[in-house]
Design a protein around this nucleic acid. Structure first.
Length: 371
RNA sequence: GUGGGUAUAGUUCAGAUGGUUAGAAUGCCAGAUUGUGGCUCUGGAGGUCGUGGGUUCAAAUCCCAUUACCCACC
């Protein structure tokens, strides 16, 4: 039996949305799905027990960070990421392509790869497609991402095109260097904010026949409308029989807009990052629980939520924890934000099943949940 | 009781020789955050300079008195 397969169970009658299941060695993932981010082999402020409790189907981790610390060979010695971090469900590792460019202050791009300095100790390193494949295979996630170049926003067309073509060549090298069948490799489409490049990139990556295809280089600071335009331009060229992963997205509004345009997988640090700063996502929009208006508010974070934090604690208590800089504030808000986002995805899947995805979007907008 | 010291933002403190609108940190209030350099960044409000006199064109700053607290000695 194939360790990986993707079934499209239903295609939405009104939009480009699809309902599907992605089968992996560590379990099945219903799509569209949201994947919490655990950059350094931990979803910040959440234990695997918390993640199972909110029923996260899959989590992300990061090649760049784990390579620098503790080192991929150490993770291999530990028996791979699943064993090392005690997470039984699927894992996807990002390739580090994004981090090399967003974190490395002195990186240099060559045809062979990228030379960068560690943000931890300043040490010099070289990432090539082959090296990244070696690292990702040592980490042993279910899904590995190709090493790509994410051009910064804004970038001019000539540079964006050069980075895109380099990404295609690197994708080919990743594919050749990637061996074994217990890990799926996904290709990444680039092309910046140029529709013609997006289409060209989608076709090129599709031709390489990866198990799944990702959309990179979006949600990097551009207006949301621009991101949606890019998705609409490229989606007809993204193979319908394979999962489409929109990298780095997103907030609840971007999730439903992405699904409507045909994306199946999403990841985003927003949920856990804003949780650590006292912000909760709710059915009625974002709530800054740090604010004084909640000092004597003894209702739950979100009155319509069934998560552990909402069932047991009040806004007043969580505000107190935030003001006192207690760790539990980040824990409870992370649990809530992840639970809430996973719940949104569940609502989206139900709506696709019942052909009412556009109505769901209208309902979210009406109650303020798209803010 | 005697001698000395301190008193400036909610708090801890900066403010040479007197000179525009008295600063910082922290706290407080509010924003930001989208393939994460975890606990960050940005902005805002907040002070009759212990009190009362005096000198001076001008006093947080110099002089006198007074109050509170701290230290030493009796």
């Amino acid at each position: 039996m194939q360790p990986f397969s993707f079934e499209v169970i239903k295609t939405c009658a009104q939009t480009g949305a699809r309902l599907g299941v992605l089968h992996t060695p560590h379990g099945d993932i219903e799509t569209p799905c949201y994947m919490p981010v655990g950059t350094r082999a931990t979803v910040k402020a959440m234990s695997p027990r918390d993640l199972l409790d909110v029923d996260a189907p899959i989590i992300l981790s990061n090649t760049y960070h784990l390579y620098l610390r503790p080192g991929h060979e150490l993770v291999r010695e530990a028996g791979g990421l699943h064993s090392f971090m005690a997470w039984p469900r699927p894992i996807l590792t990002d390739s580090g392509g994004f981090q090399v460019f967003s974190l490395g202050d002195t990186n240099r791009v060559y045809e062979d790869g990228v030379e960068f300095r560690s943000h931890i100790d300043g040490g010099k390193h070289l990432f090539t497609p082959e090296k990244v494949m070696q690292i990702e295979q040592a980490l042993g996630a279910d899904i590995a991402m190709c090493f790509d170049e994410c051009a910064p926003y804004p970038s001019d067309e000539p540079y964006t095109k050069a980075a895109m073509l380099r990404t295609h060549r690197w994708a080919k090298r990743c594919q050749q260097a990637h061996t074994g069948h217990d890990q799926a490799l996904f290709g990444i489409v680039q092309g910046g904010m140029y529709a013609s490049l997006r289409i060209e990139s989608a076709k090129a990556i599709a031709d390489m026949d990866f198990i799944g295809n990702a959309i990179g280089g979006l949600s990097v600071g551009e207006p949301k409308g621009m991101m949606y335009d890019m998705l609409e331009a490229m989606m007809p060229f993204m193979p319908p029989g394979k999962p489409r992963y929109l990298m780095g997205v997103g907030s609840p509004d971007c999730l439903i807009e992405g699904v409507i345009r045909g994306a199946d997988m999403f990841d985003c640090v927003l949920q856990t990052r804003i949780a650590r700063n006292g912000l909760a996502l709710t059915h009625f929009g974002r709530r800054m629980l740090r604010n004084k208006e909640f000092a004597r508010d003894f209702s739950p974070i979100d009155e319509n939520c069934a998560c552990y934090a909402c069932k047991n604690f009040t806004r007043a208590y969580i505000r107190h924890l935030i003001k006192a800089k207690e760790i539990l504030a980040a824990q409870l808000l992370s649990i809530h934000n992840i639970y809430y986002t996973l719940h949104c995805m569940k609502e989206i899947r139900e709506a696709i099943k019942e052909d009412r995805l556009l109505r769901l979007r209208g309902e979210w907008a009406a109650r303020g949940g798209m803010d």
